[in-house]
């Protein structure tokens, strides 16, 4: 029982990202409204961000900002005391990429709306077949 509990505690953040990712994927597969699909896409990307950030976590460590940075040059810095900065850096990039994709996707949605006057995928498809 104790082992199971440890197992859950040590892994639940990864499960969290899986669940979030699957919610996003479900929205992208099932939803008919294009804006809902875009939201699903965003949730999907956010899940990956959560995953990366949880890689960076370290027990008993603090923010990756070195305390009294400039004061004492001989102040030894121990890697164990600080969280891993690299995933945060990568995710800053990934967030920006996600925002850029979102912008382009929304621009396209507006274009589609102008063209068909609807954002429901089945209605658009019906109209395309109708022609």
């Amino acid at each position: 029982m104790d082992g199971l509990f440890d197992f859950i505690v040590s892994k639940y953040n990864y499960w969290g990202y899986v669940v979030l990712m699957m919610i996003g994927m479900y929205a992208m597969i099932v939803k008919k409204n294009l804006v809902k699909k875009i939201i699903g896409m965003n949730i999907f990307q956010t899940a990956i961000i959560l995953f990366y950030v949880s890689i960076g976590a370290k027990r008993d460590a603090t923010l990756p900002i070195i305390a009294h940075g400039h004061g004492d040059a001989h102040h030894a810095v121990h890697a164990v005391d600080y969280m891993n900065p690299l995933p945060h850096v990568l995710m800053l990039t990934a967030i920006v990429v996600a925002v850029a994709t979102l912008g382009v996707a929304l621009a396209l949605t507006i274009k589609i709306y102008k063209q068909y006057n609807t954002l429901e995928e089945d209605e658009i498809n019906a109209r395309l077949r109708g022609r």
Partner: peptide, 12 residues
Amino acid sequence: FPAWGDPASPAS
């Protein structure tokens, strides 16, 4: 996966 927050994981 290495456990969450494990200071000995390869990533850290």
